[in-house]
């Protein structure tokens, strides 16, 4: 079977970077490093979306998770940085080990389940199926727009209402007044 070397390399590059940076982010000593690593993860995820043909999702991912959210985080970090204690790292309570154990079991069982489903499933396709990239982007946007405005139009409208409510809600939080009244 013919193997697309370039694609393999790209995938492994992105995937390796993603896992590495995710681990780094969790175990980083300083929160800022943690954030930087997380941004790398988000960019790598965008790359994965690109390989999968989801260009639009990738762009949105970069715009939101690559740029907007990190800025918010940076603001929060700046706000707290001088009070930050470097000892706040990760807990080494029993729950660290229990969760490690539990998640390890979960991981192995899911790997097993996915693998068995891949080979045994009647729509075995999972292993044989090749990814079919779209011939033209027009097709994809057509499908997306149909998804948004026909199939899931109700959810879309609800989402818009949700965003409106978030704005209204934030006005009830009374960010500045509240802070002063507490002191």
């Amino acid at each position: 079977m013919e193997i697309d070397i370039l694609k393999t390399l790209i995938f492994y590059g992105f995937a390796g970077a993603m896992i590495l940076f995710a681990l780094l982010s969790i175990f980083a000593f300083r929160i800022l490093y943690s954030l930087l690593a997380a941004v790398c993860v988000f960019f790598a995820a965008a790359g994965i979306y690109f390989i999968l043909g989801a260009d639009y999702n990738a762009v949105v991912q970069i715009a939101i998770y690559g740029i907007a959210i990190p800025i918010l985080f940076v603001m929060a970090i700046m706000f707290t940085s001088d009070k930050l204690d470097k000892k706040i790292y990760i807990t080494f309570k029993p729950r660290f080990f229990f969760s490690f154990l539990g998640l390890g079991v979960l991981f192995l069982s899911l790997i097993y389940l996915i693998a068995t489903s891949l080979s045994l499933n009647s729509n075995s396709a999972w292993i044989l199926q090749k990814q079919t990239l779209f011939i033209n982007k027009y097709q994809m946007f057509n499908a997306l727009s149909e998804g948004f405005f026909v199939n899931y139009v109700f959810a879309f409208e609800l989402l818009s209402l949700l965003l409106l409510i978030v704005v209204v809600g934030i006005s009830t939080l009374n960010l500045i007044k509240e802070a002063k009244s507490d002191e």
């Binding site: 393999t8 995938f11 969760s99 979960l106 891949l118």
Partner: peptide, 20 residues
């Protein structure tokens, strides 16, 4: 040969790292 299961494993690992 990059197939679906590669992406699934990647997502699984990332998910569990996040949960952890």
């Amino acid at each position: 040969d990059i197939g679906l299961y590669h992406y699934l494993f990647l997502a699984l690992i990332l998910f569990l790292i996040g949960l952890f």
